[in-house]
Design a protein around this nucleic acid. Structure first.
Lengths: 328, 328
DNA sequence: TAACATATTGACCGCGTGTGCATTTTTTTA
DNA sequence: TAAAAAAATGCACACGCGGTCAATATGTTA
């Protein structure tokens, strides 16, 4: 009862049986007689014994650890993603080893190295782009790698991502429907691949309709950046529509438009966002936006974790648009 | 190079040295000659060898795993807390084993059991109240337990919490300063200890000033609950002040007041929140609120993790008030 | 060059667990 | 009741690593 944990050996001694008996008692399907099992359980209870899953994983070669790496964990979107993911993992008896990539935003390679050292069974990347070498090492070591909203140009990696292009097209169509003549497209300065896809798909669509597009990007993906974008862009009175590639940006933009630049939304200016974070539905905002269905996205991630040989490596999650009040 | 990870044995064979040499090469302070070290590193590089930290922890008795358990991970406050915590842990070379208590909101005991099985060095509880038996087991097994914003009535547990009472007093003083005659205090139905403390300290203060207090509580700790509270409470036109024990509640309340119940804030109604989540500073809200200094709180948690014999088990983090625009 | 001090090395053990195998005990069948 | 089948049990090994210790190699001094 001293420092440290109780071992199976001690339980065996107390119960007057062999250590094997203890092990078998705690192993489903182990061959143990009723009386022995009772004695073992009693001794274990009294001593406060718990199986050491680290040692367990040592010969099983199954650590049951799933590495999750991402940055911006406190943003509404990512945090919800992490919330759902961690619940799903727990339900499946998997443990979530969380690595915050805030320090190494650019290069998440060392973090993944760390996960290798912990023998993570699989690695889920919420944000950030792993270098190709890491991907190679993952398959070499039999570690499943799952990228969320990240599109890598190789067929041997699991990717689950929202249909950004289609979402951008939806946004474009909505702004066209609102009869906008000159629109802004707002993204952050971090230029994540997902954001780039949204910007380019949107721009392309608008160009094909001969509608002028003004691109703005800067700062982190935050409310404040959106606010700044609004203050700067809306000096141009002819802009009557905006697609913000993230709700956070959109809400900042919306506040700038209404409270700083004297615009009336949606009469004067139509705004469409992307993600559908909870705040987009708050009464003060009522943002019209493209919905990333986080639950189905998470579900696909978990499924990719389960199945031994995933049928599809690239899974596109369809997006929809929720109509609220910020687009005419 | 088959399935699974490379072992030190294989590296030794390839490098033409003993396995001990490999181990020493990767152990700081190990006695290895330059040429041998070079050979080992080369072989390790070629084979893609990585130390197995699980096996490492098996004899060290240091898993380097810190268990973090909490619920409501996507709420602005908790997610930020988790964000900061996970960064701090990583910086200190500790791994964050995240357990989402969403399923077992009431009883987080089984989750902590799980962390025992993984031989977590310490356990940080973001939310939820662990039963006393768990606390006993923690100290019996030499696992440090740190409770955040949770006050247990025992001297052998590490607790880091914001000064809820003082915060509530600040809120009360502010509403008195706003010359409120009848105030509401809004909390969620989940009745966490922290919320209860805020409510009671606030009510007590107001009573001592002979100001009438109407208490409302219901639903989860969410924007929606606050909105509902506003819709129901503000039917009483004589209520001219409100203390919402959580910013999320406050923002919902504020929206209900302005957009649904036709109140003018702060002329007609003063509102004070608690937490200072990012959204409280957004231009549409500009909520006057009590600030929980999350960075210092997190810092104290990390420090409690470090020090082998913490000087103080109960650490109260001082709170301040940020003046914005919702209190007259 | 010899004697000595020091740096390096490899064999071995322990960490806590699961499991194959041979042995012993219990149960079933003839 | 005896023989055969089944179940239960303990021993020993493996998992991948760090650390101890004696043996060996290298360097240093007289």
């Amino acid at each position: 009862m001293g420092r440290g944990f109780v071992t199976a050996e001690e339980v065996a001694k107390r119960a007057g049986v062999s250590r094997s008996a203890v092990s078998r008692t705690f192993t489903p399907g182990g061959s143990v007689s009723k009386p022995v099992r009772r004695k073992v359980l009693k001794a274990a209870q009294e001593l406060g014994y718990r199986v050491n899953r680290l040692a367990q994983g040592l010969n099983n070669d199954r650590s049951n650890l799933i590495g999750v790496v991402g940055s911006n964990l406190s943003s509404p979107f990512i945090s919800r993603q992490l919330d759902l993911l961690s619940i799903g993992l727990l339900r499946r008896g998997l443990q979530c080893l969380l690595l915050n990539a805030a320090d190494a935003r650019k290069d998440i390679a060392p973090l993944i190295e760390l996960l290798f050292e912990f023998r993570a069974q699989a690695i889920v990347v919420l944000s950030g782009e792993p270098p190709a070498s890491i991907v190679d090492e993952c398959i070499a070591n039999g570690v499943r790698l799952i990228l969320i909203n990240q599109r890598l140009d190789r067929a041997d990696t699991n990717m689950v991502l929202s249909d950004d292009s289609h979402g951008a097209h939806l946004a474009a169509m909505r702004l066209i429907q609102a009869k906008c003549n000159k629109v802004a497209v707002v993204s952050s300065g971090s230029q994540t691949p997902a954001q780039l896809r949204r910007v380019s798909a949107f721009t392309q669509h608008m160009n094909s309709e001969s509608i002028e597009v003004v691109a703005w990007s800067g700062g982190p993906t935050s409310y404040e950046s959106g606010y700044r974008a609004g203050c700067e862009l809306l000096l141009d009175k002819s802009i009557d529509g905006a697609f913000c590639v993230t709700d956070l940006l959109a809400l900042g933009f919306l506040d700038a438009a209404r409270l700083e630049m004297g615009r009336i939304v949606p009469e004067n200016l139509s705004i469409v966002g992307f993600d559908d974070i909870p705040q987009a539905g708050w009464k003060s905002y009522q943002l019209t936006t493209v919905v990333q269905p986080l639950d189905t996205l998470t579900e696909k991630v978990l499924k990719a974790l389960d199945s031994d040989e995933p049928e599809t490596r690239l899974q596109l999650v369809p997006v929809t648009m929720v109509e609220r009040t910020t687009a005419r």
